[in-house]
């Protein structure tokens, strides 16, 4: 039987700004099972960032149920939430958020520093493995400024998988990249997904959504669409169809 990784029921999130209550999420339901690659789409202001913050245990819903890997997130303390993020979630951001002047390896090691059960030897090994997996085995000692945007995002992906999370949450992970590099990154995501990783990918680009196997669309705090993708694009193939860049 499929294992449910994320289960949300009637999630609502309201913000009090001045005297006005802004209702960002107005009751959302869905679940994500292990091995799914879900894109969450929506225009700006649709509530997808708010949803992602809740999924990432950075924020708590005003009401509703959120279970992450069978753990009820509501009412957990800040420290318990931090532990949950450390052990069960891998974050990938639009702007990579790597530590400057810090090597790729040290950047990838970072989440394991916050896990006391991981020894320094194991930490290094796992970080090296993660970097090899994203194809940066020969770039471990490079600092972010010595890496291209695509390579930086690969480091960020390695950092997101180093703690072996139950779900990878990506926030516009291709937003700062050109088409070719985006496809390369999507090929990497598809590769990770084929290895059994569950991925929730927030984007507003429809062509990126075609690489996933399920799309959820939000509008004004409601879920308006939740469909499996019929013709999944294979990123590696799409990459080959791109016009070859002119050699300079």
């Amino acid at each position: 039987m499929d294992k449910t990784i994320i289960k949300i029921e009637e999630i609502k999130r309201e913000f009090l700004i001045g005297n006005e209550t802004v209702r960002a999420l107005k009751g959302i339901n869905f679940s994500i099972t292990q091995g799914e690659f879900v894109t969450i789409m929506g225009t700006s202001g649709s509530g997808k960032s708010t949803l992602l913050n809740i999924l990432g245990c950075l924020d708590q819903p005003t009401s509703g149920i959120y279970e992450l890997d069978k753990v009820a997130v509501k009412n957990l303390s800040k420290n318990a939430l931090a532990k949950l993020r450390n052990e069960k979630i891998g974050f990938i951001f639009q702007s990579y958020n790597l530590l400057p002047r810090t090597t790729a390896l040290e950047n990838v090691e970072l989440p394991l520093y916050y896990n006391k059960t991981v020894s320094s030897k194991e930490r290094k090994e796992r970080a090296e493995n993660a970097l090899s997996l994203v194809g940066l085995a020969d770039r471990m000692d490079h600092t972010p400024s010595q890496l291209s945007g695509g390579q930086q995002q690969r480091v960020a992906i390695a950092r997101a998988i180093v703690n072996d999370p139950v779900v990878i949450l990506a926030d516009e992970a291709t937003g700062n990249l050109d088409t070719r590099t985006s496809y390369e990154i999507m090929a990497l995501f598809q590769d990770l997904n084929s290895r059994g990783k569950t991925i929730a990918f927030v984007t507003h680009e429809p062509d990126i959504a075609l690489f996933s196997n399920r799309t959820i669309v939000l509008r004004d705090g409601h879920k308006i669409k939740d469909n499996p993708v019929d013709n999944i694009n294979i990123a590696a193939e799409a990459l080959q169809k791109l016009p070859i860049e002119e050699e300079l």
């Binding site: 990432g56 950075l58 800040k78 420290n79 931090a82 532990k83 993020r85 450390n86 052990e87 974050f91 951001f93 958020n97 530590l99 970072l110 989440p111 916050y114 896990n115 950092r159 703690n163």
Partner: peptide, 16 residues
């Protein structure tokens, strides 16, 4: 600030 945000996101507690 962003580094702090990142560290918190990947599991750094306030006390860390």
């Amino acid at each position: 600030t962003r580094e702090i945000g990142l560290r918190m996101a990947i599991g750094g507690r306030g006390v860390d």
